[in-house]
């Protein structure tokens, strides 16, 4: 065994741009390669939107923050949003159709995911596209696990054993091929209970609030050990008073405030960035 020389690894870990300079700045350049980044939120907060954007930005050249690479999208939530992908790809200039460099594989169970990972080597070493595959997106990991396992100790033990198997396999692939790996996760409601375990604090935020409810990532503590970085997308309705009318009887409108939070990451402090989802994609907002 030989140690790696840290100086030869480069001054920074390679990053994949999110396709927006403001979001990139909050994440120290983007999604890091050779590790697993988890993106969790309740439904409709923009997880899939961000994932689709990553599939496209991976194809950008290194000068634009991309990886000049193809990507693999493993999805367990149906159907595949090909129409939205097509819409997003219009804002990407390129000589060829970006969809050619996106491989899509549907998944129906957690074991199927593991089997797919075992068979990935040929795709990664000898890609059918002319670009190498450097990004794997799993959307979502929670859907695979939440249906299959019961809430009893035996099942939970089997479940977490599979978590670690999948995570180790993903990390091995990520290291070997310098892949950026992004997995999405759902949320569970936070329930105040006597044993206090439900409230185990993980990461920078004392409580995560989305749609006015207290939530936490699904799949529990053992899965939290399986990812390197964890990002949280929140959505909250914000009351915006109509300007110019101080009487209080003015029209009160509300708007959706979306935020991206760094829950934990080995290289990043806590930060929070507001973003919007528009026709062209997901973009950070400086406020």
């Amino acid at each position: 065994m030989r140690p790696e020389n840290l100086l030869e690894l480069g001054a920074t870990t390679q990053k994949l741009t999110l396709g927006c300079p403001i979001l990139d700045r909050h994440l120290g350049g983007g999604i890091p390669c050779s590790s697993i980044t988890e993106l969790f939120s309740e439904s409709g907060c923009g997880k899939t939107q961000l994932c689709l954007q990553l599939l496209l930005s991976a194809q950008l050249p290194a000068s634009a923050g991309g990886l000049s690479a193809a990507s693999l999208y493993l999805h367990s939530e149906f159907p595949f949003p090909s129409r939205r992908l097509n819409q997003l790809s219009h804002s990407f200039s390129g000589s060829h159709d970006p969809s050619d460099n996106i491989f899509v594989q549907p998944l129906h169970s957690a074991h199927e995911l593991f089997d797919v990972l075992l068979k990935l080597n040929p795709l990664l070493t000898n890609p059918p596209s002319y670009l190498p595959v450097k990004l794997i997106v799993i959307d979502s990991i929670a859907a695979l696990f939440r249906s299959e396992y019961d809430n009893n100790p035996a099942d939970l033990k089997r479940r977490s054993s599979l978590f670690f198997k999948i995570s180790c396999k993903l990390k091995t692939l990520a290291k070997r091929f310098s892949l950026a790996v992004v997995v999405t996760n759902q949320v569970v409601d936070f329930v105040e209970s006597g044993d206090g375990l439900n409230g185990v604090r993980i990461g920078n935020l004392e409580c995560l609030v989305s749609s006015g409810r207290r939530v936490g990532p699904a799949l529990g503590l053992s899965w939290a050990n399986c990812v390197n970085s964890r990002l949280f997308l929140s959505r909250n309705e914000e009351i915006v008073g109509e300007e110019g009318d101080d009487g209080g009887s003015g029209v009160v409108s509300s708007r959706t405030k979306r935020q991206l939070h760094v829950v934990f990451a080995p290289h990043l402090p806590y930060s929070c960035c507001e973003f919007v989802i528009v026709k062209e994609g997901v973009f950070g907002v400086d406020r």
Binding site: P3, L6, L9, G10, A11, T12, T13, G28, P32, S34, S35, I36, K171, A174, K175, N228, P266, H267
Partner: peptide, 16 residues
């Protein structure tokens, strides 16, 4: 120092 990384969480920029 010997740093044995089993989790892949070592980031050069943070160490720097």
């Amino acid at each position: 120092a010997i740093y044995i990384d089993t989790e892949g969480s070592f980031m050069v920029e943070r160490a720097m």
